[in-house]
Nucleic acid binder design. Sequence first.
DNA 1: CTGTTAGCGCTTTCAT
DNA 2: ATGAAAGCGCTAACAG
Lengths: 332, 332
Amino acid sequence: MATIYEVSALAGVSLSSVSRVLNDHEHVSKKTKQKVVAAMNELDYRPNTIARSLASNCSNSVGVLVSELHGPFFGAMLSTIELELRNAGKHAVITAGHSDEESEKKGLDFLIDRNCDALILHVDAISDEYLIKLSKGKTPFVILNRYISEIKDNCFYLNNELGGYLAAKHLIEQGHKDIAYISGPTTKQDTAERLVGHKKALTEAHISFKENLIYEGDYLTESGRDGFNSLIKNKATFTAVICSNDEMASGAMRGARDHKLLIPEQCSFIGFDNAFFTEYLYPQLTTINFPVNDMAKMSTLWILQNVYKQKEIKITNIFTPKLIERKSVLQK
Amino acid sequence: MATIYEVSALAGVSLSSVSRVLNDHEHVSKKTKQKVVAAMNELDYRPNTIARSLASNCSNSVGVLVSELHGPFFGAMLSTIELELRNAGKHAVITAGHSDEESEKKGLDFLIDRNCDALILHVDAISDEYLIKLSKGKTPFVILNRYISEIKDNCFYLNNELGGYLAAKHLIEQGHKDIAYISGPTTKQDTAERLVGHKKALTEAHISFKENLIYEGDYLTESGRDGFNSLIKNKATFTAVICSNDEMASGAMRGARDHKLLIPEQCSFIGFDNAFFTEYLYPQLTTINFPVNDMAKMSTLWILQNVYKQKEIKITNIFTPKLIERKSVLQK
DNA sequence: CTGTTAGCGCTTTCAT
DNA sequence: ATGAAAGCGCTAACAG
């Protein structure tokens, strides 16, 4: 592998001149530039990124720490981040934290030690305090799907309350009054916020909120099914169920089928996220769209703008959910 | 950020000694080791990975180039690779090639220039020749989901012919004789191989293969639906359809519903891959399991063994598909 | 506009 | 067992 020395020798110019054309500096005469380029081609020269990183203290890479690498949500997120970064000549170092505190911290150290210029974080086990402290460090970062008031400009998140509101409102407008709710873990910020919106819609419609219509799941498919069965076993009365994500909704629909219930005739369903597979379900699932791609793109642009000084765009930190009507809700 | 110099100064030993304890070399006295460790702790020293990479010419990172970052197949693959690598103290630099030749080549250069110690490749636009040439280069790599005889030891792939055979055989055993087939692009290796297995099963059962029962799709959901509609429009007669992946199967099932057909009573379906969402479908999809996780794990272990000299395991290059019976096939 | 000269932080001979 | 010193390949003042 040819080095910058060989290029400089072959071109008959100094190291710095080679470096200058490499980095597109101004103040290089056309002639020397030509000579350098010619030498580079002849030697099939490839700059050593590691050496550049060391010398310039900039790795041109941004670290991405997500809960998982699989699943529709993270798949969409990673895809968008990688695309935007690549378009900007940067690249992603991706790792997973598995919603476990120690694992997330390891992932963080890992990326920081790896000299990432910036980080994109989707973490849920690490505490607010830890992140606030981290923000005093030298590696800038953004946080996805989470709001921390002390560092709110670095946070990109959904208006979850509105999402919860929209789902309930839609059902109410379709004539439903007895609405069950299969939530995520109530300790999680997004779950709590969505529930607030849910209750708000009920209140506006003068429907009282009933504790026995709620089931706390864990965002996994099976807990949707469990939730539905538990609701039935407790003799809860409802004509529709809202789930905190699409996976649980698919599980709940399976639960309904276990009980020979017709969907949506005997029970309506609404999910959350608008994952790609909701269109495959039968009936197709009405859900709340989570603009993951927009959020991922915006957070990447923030880094391009603030860390690499590339773009100049208007930054939005909060994103708006939207109802996607399909076939899983009955109009009464 | 403390450097190795400061540690050496504080500990009162030389640079090399610090480096030695850092790298767990033998021949370091307990005493100096203790002093060094103490100094590191006091300074909260973090070795600079970039500098280490430059000096040692080893980045401890393996590049991963996949077609896409989203989707059930790649999600599972990336998850497994990252996990195995991390367990071994290595890490992944992930990028996407989007099944486009130029894009794939760029991704390759990118990873190589980034000094990855090895590569894991899932590419389909780059030619065999290019990869064979690449294998002469200095960066070792493995290839997923593809067989190239000249470098077969670096290839990890599914027994696609068997997969195609198993699907057809199952339908035949259930009494089906008129079997439609929605394939991927026939130029692709896996598609072609599966078709061979399909025909073999037909032949064994003395069923003649009919060209009009085949439709060439593109692995996307919509083409499954198009395929089904096209089959119907051409007045093809069939009681079951096999699809080259689960996405197309879900699309084809939608097509059947467009025509008010009951599944599986009036038409049976078999998919391929055993993607997570096949369990969500209604009825749940019978499909062929593709052991992506095993394949991803094995290829990572190959690298751990051959590049990092860590493990000592038996390497398998070919993986075996398996029929997963669920509810989408009618026994006649 | 161009060349000289220090580094960037760490590894690795080679002596001792 | 330990230290001195020479790089790894490139960037970035600085001087000219």
